[in-house]
Amino acid sequence: MSLGAKRTICLLGSMLLAVSWIPAQGTNTSGQGNVSGSGARIRRDPNQSPAALPRPKTSTPQTYSAAQVQAGELRFAAQCAFCHGRDATGGESGPDLTRSELVAQDMRGDKIRPLLRTGRVDAGMPKFDLADAELDAMVAFIHAQMEKLAVLKGGKRSVEPSDLRTGNAADGRAYFNGIGGCAACHSATGDLAGIASRYQGFALLRRMLFPSGRPEPSLPKATFTLASGETVVVPLVAEDEFTVTVLDPMGSRQTYSRDAVNVKIDNPISAHFTQLGKYNDAAMHNVFAYLDTLK
């Protein structure tokens, strides 16, 4: 028997004792709270696209030397600017940092530095293993840019809530309950009640099309079938052709070889991917208009 198989049996045994605990781990129900960086919890209303929000202001004014800002500009241009733009207002794939709540709440790098060190790998942001002085310089530049751009309006990547109001809510409702198939998983009076109060504009549209970002959507479920025929369901955090990684009842990650276990993955989000292939633009805007009425 391989080591992996032994661990599996041992773990799944303990899982059975903790089955009642498992569903709670899969769901992040905190409507509030934009978790930003490690340990940084910013209290803010809906999860918004930075570009669609009023520009936040630095909560604690802080000053940096011109030399530090300049050194940071050089580093930022080389390491960050392709995604976040040379002026930090957004680039090929990354958000406008001058409208970032995390930056606004940051005090001399206490939130930015941990984020740079860990990255947001799932969102495509690598970790940066930089010297302290280099991190400090980047922090200085980002704050300087936020100050500098605080006086400007608009934004080159902006999508305003008013831009999106082209759909017909009644048609959207019919699509939602009919051929769209949305009602198979969702309900206007259940999980989606008040959704338009929690998300506005592009944040609502994006979450409607493919839930991501924060708060994170529910994790997929991994259903293990044991030799006895019993099944254990746990949250899946990662998978590939060869392994599955799940959260055990203690909340830590466990990786199993697919060869050693009998596991089935159920990912409700995959229905959204299928739906992306079915929408036409009118239906998309109509469903958005309908969801926008669920305040």
Binding site: G91, R157, S158, D163, L205
Partner: peptide, 24 residues
């Protein structure tokens, strides 16, 4: 893959000149 693409005159005519987001 699917993405969503935006352009309005306010985005201008220089460089990226629009906004787009990869969805999945």
């Amino acid at each position: 893959g699917y993405g969503i693409y935006f352009f309005k005159p306010e985005h201008g005519g220089y460089g990226w000149a629009g906004a787009d987001y990869n969805l999945a």
